[in-house]
Amino acid sequence: MESRTDLTSEVIAIVAKSLLLRPEMVHEGSRFFLDLEAESIDILDIRFAIESRFGFKFQNDEIRELLQTIAAEQDVTEKDIPELFTVGRLVDFVWLKISGKKPN
C-alpha cells in the first residue's frame, strides 16, 4: 500500500461492497451505524474482508478498544460511539496496522 489515500479507496470499496452501496456514496466521514445503516454483523463482514485483503488479523478486542479510544478522545460514553465510528477512523486503524504509522 503506497499511501493512505490508496488505502482509503480500498477500504471504501470494501465497505461499499459489503453494504451494497455505490463507492461514491461512502466517504471518510460516513458513520457506519448512522449514515451507512450498518449493523454489527456488517462490521464483522467488513473486518473479515479487510483481514483477507491486507493479511493481518484484528485481535479480539481491537475494534472495541478502537471505539473506546475514540470515545475517550471525544470525552463521550460508549453509547455515543455510533455517532463517532466513521470510515476514516477505520482507515486510520488499518493504516497503523499495515504501515506502523499513526495518522497525521
Binding site: 454483523i41 464483522l44 463482514d45 473486518r47 473479515f48 488479523k57
Partner: peptide, 10 residues
C-alpha cells in the same frame, strides 16, 4: 477460527 467467514454461523 481464522479462515471461517464470521457470517457463516449467522
Amino acid at each position: 477460527l481464522d479462515q471461517m467467514h464470521p457470517l457463516n454461523p449467522i
